[in-house]
């Protein structure tokens, strides 16, 4: 079943001069169509200003398309009366860890979403503490978020979304401001959610993160320009580079070896373990794996 379906959507921002007069419009999303089946882990790539974030905001009715329609679980996002239902179904984790925590106490922050939805008391507690448990932050429940690391803050934000029991979670560059440790923490939480059947839409600049997805799309000038498995997209990295992306190191090394005459198998290894296995078996036995 398609959880998310965008049909030919467009969105443009008005541009203003110093006096506040409209001088033109900048198209951020340009006749974009995509369907995301329930349970998918989708990575969205593209350079800054390509329209990825604008696209993402359409997925939970933070923006309503100016043209076209977005359906979430079959519901048209432009129908205002269903807005809360849509936002409950599609949670969102934003880029800046500080700017999405609303409470001075962690457990109360996690409770914010379900409180707004009127979740009754006993269930509310269950949801808050099990969400904190899932992201490994239970011991901090009654602390202040101020002293946490970036990765921990993002995990709190994820718990806050989980407490709404969403069907999908959009990570809008949620790892961009983190150090490698924080990124690993967030990626681990993200994969856990995916294993539980939640649809993941992960917007990122990190190719290594994208290579863990089931499907990768590249957005450029508001359009989907590449769409496929990570192997398909990164395998064609000459094309991907046109849209400001760089292939993971493993793909680059593989290309160097192929150019040097080594005949590796068709399978495109995306990480070092896979590639090392491929190279080793090839060098030792000559058999392609």
């Amino acid at each position: 079943m398609d959880l998310i379906k965008a049909e030919d959507i467009s969105y443009s921002f008005k541009e203003y001069d110093e006096e506040g007069n409209v001088t033109g419009a900048r198209t951020a999303v340009d006749h974009l169509s995509i369907t995301v089946p329930a349970g998918t882990f989708l990575a969205v790539l593209g350079r800054n200003g390509s329209g990825k974030s604008t696209f993402a905001k359409h997925l939970n009715a933070l923006l309503i398309p100016q043209e076209g329609t977005v359906y979430v679980d079959g519901i048209d996002t432009s129908k205002a009366k269903d807005m809360l239902l849509i936002r409950r179904n599609v949670g969102m984790v934003f880029q800046n860890p500080d700017n999405q925590i609303v409470s001075t106490v962690i457990e109360e922050d996690v409770a914010f979403g379900p409180e707004n939805l009127g979740v009754p008391h006993g269930e509310l507690e269950d949801r808050v503490y099990s969400s904190l448990e899932k992201v490994g932050m239970s011991e901090y429940a009654s602390n202040s978020p101020t002293k946490l690391s970036g990765g921990q803050k993002q995990r709190i934000a994820i718990a806050g979304v989980l407490a709404m029991k969403p069907k999908a979670v959009v990570f809008d560059e949620a790892t961009a401001m983190l150090d490698p440790k924080g990124r690993r923490e967030v990626m681990a939480a993200l994969k856990k959610l995916h294993e539980e059947g939640i649809t993941i839409i992960h917007i990122t600049h990190h190719m290594e993160e994208a290579s863990e997805a089931e499907r990768v799309i590249i957005i450029n000038d508001g359009k989907v320009v590449m769409d496929g498995t990570p192997q398909e997209v990164f395998g064609n990295h000459a094309e991907a580079e046109k849209y400001g992306l760089r292939a993971p190191n493993a793909v680059l090394l593989r290309d160097m070896l192929k150019d040097g005459g080594m005949r590796l198998g068709e399978h495109i290894a995306l990480d070092e373990k896979e590639l090392a296995m491929q190279i080793a078996s090839h060098l030792r036995g000559g058999e392609d794996d």
Binding site: G91, N96, N99, Q100, G113, P114, E115, N116, L117, G118
Partner: peptide, 26 residues
């Protein structure tokens, strides 16, 4: 900038005017 981000985050987490709101620690 933070206020803008926060407004989005509040919306994304279903902040609304309805009276059904509950509390974690009433």
């Amino acid at each position: 900038r933070r206020a803008e981000d926060l407004a989005l985050a509040l919306d994304a987490r279903c902040y609304n005017k309805e009276k059904w709101r509950t509390k974690l620690h009433p």
